[in-house]
Design a protein around this nucleic acid. Structure first.
Lengths: 125, 125
DNA sequence: ATTATATGAAACCCATAGGTGTCACGTCAA
DNA sequence: TTGACGTGACACCTATGGGTTTCATATAAT
């Protein structure tokens, strides 16, 4: 129940303009006009992109005076990460293993086993 | 020159059918007809999706007799991973740091410093 | 009170994405 | 040789995505 997610996250990040918007919001909360300044498209177009990002649960917004400030809401990117995680086994077993171990560690904070890097091995192909 | 990448990877994985195709190919090399069996759309439609995945460099294909076998080619998913990596700092600093360190290690194979888990700290900005 | 600013919503345009069916061709089986 | 199988290339259709312009409204500034 983390988010309504009326729009697919994969779909939301498919557009390069929206990806740039997310990067911008990663730096700081911004108003619509402020963001529009970074593009050569109309403010209305930017607004549409923001709506899509909002429907995907990737940004939130709140009004400050007459302007609408948008904030990055990266939680739903986890879905993307989880998807990608499945494929990481195909190109880098070592990194996938490490991530697995780290996530295990996250779930049991009282334990803190000494993590060590495994032997280096070249990519299978 | 790893790939032509005529199609954006983000765009390529935006479609759920194409994501399913990638998952299928993650299990094993498959022919077009074989993949079509997993969907309710026409073979021609599947073929188009495969072309898009191919243009994005995510799959490769080779002919075996009269059938065309497709294989997963996950290298270009790194672009997606790199993009996502930037945002991970906003939801999980520890994991992002570890990944960074691991990748650093990948780049300098002659050195092998003892990596230790660092303390969790809030994003710098 | 009046004007400028910041925004949202609506109507509209056009390119393209995703789907279909058809046809031709190479390959495997009888 | 003949026919079924597996596929690629085309032509076509329709919904939607990303863009625009215009209009209305609320807030800030003078």
């Amino acid at each position: 129940m983390s988010s309504a997610a009326k729009v697919d996250v994969f779909q939301a990040i498919a557009d390069p303009t929206r990806r740039t918007l997310l990067k911008l919001l990663g730096k700081q909360e911004m108003s619509v006009a402020q963001m529009t300044g970074h593009f050569s498209i109309s403010r209305t177009a930017v607004n549409k992109h923001l709506h899509i990002l909002s429907d995907a649960g990737l940004v939130s917004h709140h009004k400050v005076g007459r302007e609408t400030r948008y904030q990055l809401q990266p939680d739903n990117l986890r879905e993307l990460k989880d998807w990608l995680n499945y494929f990481e086994q195909f190109w880098d077993n070592k990194l996938a293993m490490l991530k697995f171990l780290v996530e295990q560690d996250e779930d049991s904070p009282e334990e803190n086993p000494p993590l060590r890097l495994v032997e280096k091995k070249p990519p299978s192909e």
